[in-house]
């Protein structure tokens, strides 16, 4: 199949990128950091290639979306596929896991230290 160049806003294009899917689960948070586990190979879907290139260094989902100029949902679907194939790993945010609703003071102290050193 010949793929059109990336063009946000064209729904047909978005469906083609994701093989017709428009729903993604929330496995990946906006700030989940994605890391490539392999190099792109010949014949790979172009969006997969770009993601694997970008994520040679840890890259948040939202940054991938901005770089690829694709909506968040589409990127979630693409990442889900790459993750299922073992081609990327995900580093999930620590803060979002807090049960009580608030992050722990130890984490907040680290954030404060970081901000004060800006």
């Amino acid at each position: 199949m010949i793929r059109k160049p990336v063009d946000v806003g064209d729904p047909d294009r978005l469906y083609m990128v994701t093989d017709g899917r428009s729903e993604a689960d929330d496995t990946f948070d906006l700030v989940t950091l994605i890391v490539s586990e392999c190099e792109p190979t010949a014949g790979m879907q172009s969006e997969h290639v770009r993601i694997l290139e970008l994520c040679r260094h840890p890259t948040a989902l939202v940054e991938i979306a901005a770089e690829l100029k694709l909506p968040i949902t589409v990127v979630r679907i693409l990442l889900g596929d790459l993750h299922d194939m073992g081609k990327v790993s995900a580093r999930h945010p620590r803060a979002a896991e807090s049960v009580a609703g608030l992050p722990e003071t130890t984490l907040l102290q680290e954030v404060l230290d970081g901000l004060r050193h800006l």
Partner: peptide, 15 residues
């Protein structure tokens, strides 16, 4: 240019 994160980056936070 894009500035990549440190390779040790492990947790993203949001405000």
């Amino acid at each position: 240019q894009r500035t990549p994160l440190a390779d040790a980056a492990e947790t993203g936070l949001k405000i």
